[in-house]
Amino acid sequence: MKPITKVTERAVAIDQINVNTDQIFPARFLKNPRSVGYEQFLFHDLRYDESGAKREQFPLNKDAYSDAAIIVSDQNFGCGSSREGAVYALVDAGFRCLIAPSFGDIFAANCVKNGLLTVVLPADVCAELRRQITDSNGAPVSVDLPAQTIEAPSGEKYSFDIEPFAKECLTKGLDEIGITLSYGDKIDGFEKSWRTKTPWLERNA
């Protein structure tokens, strides 16, 4: 996974509360292998109408935001079904950081597992960021994960909180599997003694 330390990227504002995982990634596309590129399904039904025509008013359809890597949205971003395809689509589309007043629990956990930073900032700060981004047609936002700060297009800085474990995974680009495997000897030791206690699970070998 790509480590995140300091990132300065174009940002896009999605001015909507409760953006759910079905909107981020409609369930019917889950059948596809990731290798087809999940970015093509990102916000599919918000970007295209039922006839397949682009909805011009949706921000990600505007040229100014075609290379955006940061989203600033509103309350409860990523709520709804736990499907991880939603996170895959954001990552495949090149997004590095999401900023909102709150996120769906499972969605936020899945983001960390896939190297995508979620930053929680107060609702009024998010609203101000969205205004600045929209007014400037995509001015860049800077994220400094080691320092835990966000710099708005106006130059104003805001600090944010993050769990130490998530911060470590994201800054080092470590996947959780890699970290757990560093406890490999503990797992081996546990497994050996557990198998001695439960010999009837012999088919596990």
């Binding site: 889950l30 292998p33 990731r34 290798s35 991880e84 395809g85 895959y88 474990f165 757990t180 406890y183 503990k186 797992i187 546990f190 497994e191 557990w194 699970l201 596990n204």
Partner: peptide, 30 residues
């Protein structure tokens, strides 16, 4: 009986005996 280790913040590494997957788990293999 399944605790392999526990971190000071309560995060616990548990041993998993069986994993059951469905079609969509092809993502996990990927």
């Amino acid at each position: 009986s399944h605790t392999i280790l526990e971190q000071p913040d309560g995060d616990t590494l548990l041993y998993v005996d069986r994993l059951l997957t469905q079609e969509n788990s092809f993502h996990a293999f990927d």
